[in-house]
Nucleic acid binder design. Structure first.
Length: 302
DNA sequence: ATCAATGGGAGCTGATTTAT
DNA sequence: ATAAATCAGCTCCCATTGAT
């Protein structure tokens, strides 16, 4: 009963997962590691994370990630789906499972109902037209985690607030895809930090509509007294060039980058950012602070 | 001593591309 | 048209490591 791997002999696993009884939920509490709990939390907060993304954030190797995620799946802590792909295969996409929701609620000291978890609404993302967008946003932060892990110098994703949390706080004015805080060590000893709002662009909105969001960000900056730069993470060089033509005047600091593997091989932490009004060279994420002068450094959001 | 996590090998599935 | 090669990703298995 206490051997987590014993049940793995039972195949096919999909049909052998236990029903959700109080016993299952209680058993989960004994078998989940602290990292497992973080995974459940992340999958709930960010709706859906792929095997690669969870590996980047939590695991030392893809091999171990698959191993543990499968175990969590069989415990009903996680659910998963695999989007159809025109060519080749896609990784598993992981979402919170019913037993995982119970555990997460207990961990937070609330009831499952208060968590507002519904299995069908959680899995709705699988068929949602926003799946690619959500996965893209999460990929941005997964790549930051990869950079931090690879450097092992103290660089870190200090904050990663999902769209839902941002909307709760500021939704009447602006609805960023995420709020983030990235830190890197500096020679002074005091770490460098940059706060940002992410606008992950998949090219489906008109540029006029994208641009119109900046009014909301300006209003938000005025309301809170904190100016937080907006980063546009774009799918193609053409899209970026067209947007930059329109970004010439703005009350909010902005920067753009193109997120193809060729243009951003090192992810968003690398020298890919071009501040609005600048002609180059492209700067690393951390260097954007200097690009706009000192905008209330180290200020707390909210 | 025990048990979970890790690292890596081997083999499987499902899909496409290339060769016969 | 059929078979073989190829590819990404997942699972099974075993030896080792690490924490308690």
């Amino acid at each position: 009963m206490t051997r987590p791997n014993a049940h793995r002999r039972l195949l096919p696993s999909r049909h052998q997962r236990p029903r959700l009884t109080p016993n299952v939920v209680a058993g989960l509490a004994e078998r989940l590691t602290p990292r497992d709990a973080e995974i459940l939390d992340a999958v709930w907060e960010h709706r859906v994370l792929t095997t690669d993304q969870l590996t980047a954030i939590f695991f030392p190797s893809i091999h171990r990630a698959r191993h543990r995620l499968l175990a969590l799946h069989e415990m009903r802590a996680l659910d998963r789906f695999r989007p159809w792909a025109p060519t080749g295969s896609r990784p598993w996409h992981w979402i919170l499972g019913t037993a995982g929701a119970h555990h997460l609620a207990a961990q937070r000291g609330i009831t499952p109902a208060e968590l507002r978890y519904r299995p069908d609404s959680a899995s709705a993302i699988a068929l949602s037209s926003r799946l690619n967008h959500q996965v893209g946003v999460n990929e941005f932060f997964a790549q930051l985690h990869t950079t931090a892990r690879h450097r092992a110098d103290g660089s870190a994703v200090a904050e990663w607030w999902p769209e839902r949390r941002c909307a709760t706080l500021w939704g009447d004015l602006a609805r960023p895809d995420a709020f983030g805080r990235w830190t890197e060590p500096s020679p002074t000893g005091q770490p460098d930090t940059i706060d940002f709002f992410l606008e992950h662009d998949t090219g489906t909105e008109t540029l006029a509509r994208v641009l119109a969001k900046l009014d909301g960000y300006a209003a938000l900056a005025e309301a809170t007294g904190i100016t937080t730069p907006v980063l546009f993470w774009l799918p193609s060089a053409a899209r970026e060039a067209n947007l930059r033509k329109l970004l010439t005047s703005s009350d909010v600091p902005t920067a753009t980058a193109v997120h193809t593997p060729v243009t951003a091989p090192d992810g968003p932490a690398g020298p890919v950012w071009l501040p609005a009004g600048s002609t180059g060279p492209r700067r690393p994420l951390i260097a954007l602070r200097d690009a706009w002068g000192t905008i209330n450094p180290h200020s707390e959001p909210v």
